[in-house]
């Protein structure tokens, strides 16, 4: 305690000189700074702002934009309509109508699929809980940040729209590949 007190240093406050007290040199340097900025912006084009609709910024990796549904590389809807995202969604923006037809005749889906999957983009807060909770890696927050529409109903994105916007997710795990192969084998198996 005593030791600490002995180590205290006193900061010396320097007296202002007469010129500094006059305030004029400071004023002058301030004028120089503002004039430099004025000149650089006007004649050397050093503008820091971005003129938004014409110029857009590069969205960085890992940006949390709007959540969209993704398909796997074999054009299957990855979502299995487990409804975890619907339950975890804080603003209750997601609404899922389960289950869909068990098998998609075109792609040979092997799991359940949602009949309808809606995200109300007016409610969505882009928190990313849906992406975090999804066991199938079927929903991702992507790079769109500026969603506009002329009506409320237009801002409720349905399954087709979400899938179209979401695109394909090229994950390393082909989870359903083997299952689908087995199912096809099963279908093709004819007992003698």
């Amino acid at each position: 305690m005593n030791n600490a007190r002995n180590n205290l240093t006193t900061v010396k406050r320097t007296e202002l000189t007469f010129l500094e007290k006059l305030y004029v040199p400071t004023l002058w340097s301030g004028l120089k700074v503002t004039f430099r900025h004025f000149w650089n912006t006007l004649f050397r084009g050093k503008v820091v702002t971005m003129e938004y609709p014409e110029q857009k910024w590069t969205v960085p990796e890992g940006y949390r934009g709007a959540p969209y549904l993704v398909k796997d590389t074999e054009d299957r809807t990855k979502c299995v309509s487990c409804q975890l995202c619907e339950f975890v969604c804080p603003p209750k923006a997601i609404r899922i109508t389960p289950p869909g037809p068990a098998v998609d005749p075109t792609t040979g889906n092997v799991e359940k699929r949602p009949k309808e999957f809606e995200i109300n983009m007016l409610r969505c807060i882009f928190c990313g809980f849906c992406q975090e909770v999804c066991p199938e890696e079927a929903i991702f927050l992507q790079k769109d940040y500026s969603l506009t529409g002329v009506s409320r109903s237009e801002m409720i994105y349905d399954k087709e729209k979400l899938l179209a916007l979401g695109g394909v997710h090229r994950g390393p795990i082909m989870k359903w590949k083997q299952k689908a192969d087995e199912a096809r084998k099963q279908d093709a198996f004819k007992p003698e």
Binding site: T34, H37, F38, K46, V47, V48, T49
Partner: peptide, 13 residues
């Protein structure tokens, strides 16, 4: 406009 230029902005355009 002058305020904008001093603050490195563009101003009404």
């Amino acid at each position: 406009k002058i305020s904008a230029f001093i603050q490195d902005r563009v101003g009404p355009n």
